[in-house]
């Protein structure tokens, strides 16, 4: 009899605590659920905030980094003397490695017509160091800028570049609009 009683009491306490745990779990679920979205979130660089510090190249968990330079062609002046391509003060506008700003020669210079040149990024070579971005924003239109490439990004729970970004330029954006490409801010999106 005595034993039955103690077992019953223990079961009663256990059931009570189980209910309490269940309710607190439901409470957390409701509270967090009210701030939840059906859509997933991905990391992206806001080019307006980026200060081209160069940490994107080193802080990403991927090596080479999932951050690449992209070219908003729409903003580009197609200059012969490109601030993003050539080192400052080059004597001749030649494509020799000694003249190039990019440490991995990831920018291809392509002649279009007099006097225009197109600059195309080879993403397999680009390491996201932002040297060209700095050059382009200092001397040009700022059409070269950094973006997180989602075919390479692991979408870590906490982006390790975001943690060390000095200018808070990396934020989460909804996966349906995963890029913040310059120019698209200014002109309305097509379609």
């Amino acid at each position: 009899m005595e034993k039955d009683k103690s077992i019953k009491r223990r079961e009663f306490i256990h059931t009570g605590l189980r209910l309490a745990l269940g309710f607190s779990l439901a409470g957390v679920a409701v509270a967090a659920g009210r701030k939840s979205t059906a859509e997933k979130w991905v990391w992206q660089i806001d080019p307006a905030k980026c200060t081209q510090c160069g940490r994107c190249a080193t802080e990403c968990v991927k090596s080479p980094s999932a951050v690449k330079c992209i070219h908003a062609y729409d903003l580009c002046g197609y200059c012969d003397l490109c601030g993003g391509y050539f080192k400052p003060g080059v004597k001749q506008l030649e494509t020799g490695a000694e003249n190039q700003l990019c440490p991995t020669a990831a920018i291809q210079r392509k002649y279009i017509e007099e006097p225009y040149f197109e600059y195309v990024i080879n993403e397999d070579l680009c390491i996201g160091c932002a040297k060209c971005v700095k050059g382009c924003s200092s001397f040009g239109n700022g059409s070269l800028h950094l973006q997180i490439r989602h075919d390479r990004c692991d979408n870590c729970n906490e982006c390790s570049i975001a943690r060390s970004c000095p200018s808070d330029a990396i934020k989460r954006v909804p996966a349906s609009q995963p890029y913040l490409i310059k120019g698209e801010f200014i002109k309305p999106l097509k379609g």
Binding site: A72, D74, C76, G77, C79, I112, R149, H150
Partner: peptide
């Protein structure tokens, strides 16, 4: 620098955006 006006009718590419 102003946007170039291509005489040869060259059309600018647009940047690719690989989906997550």
């Amino acid at each position: 620098f102003p946007k170039p006006e291509f005489e040869t009718g060259y059309v600018q590419p647009s940047p690719t955006t690989p989906e997550p």
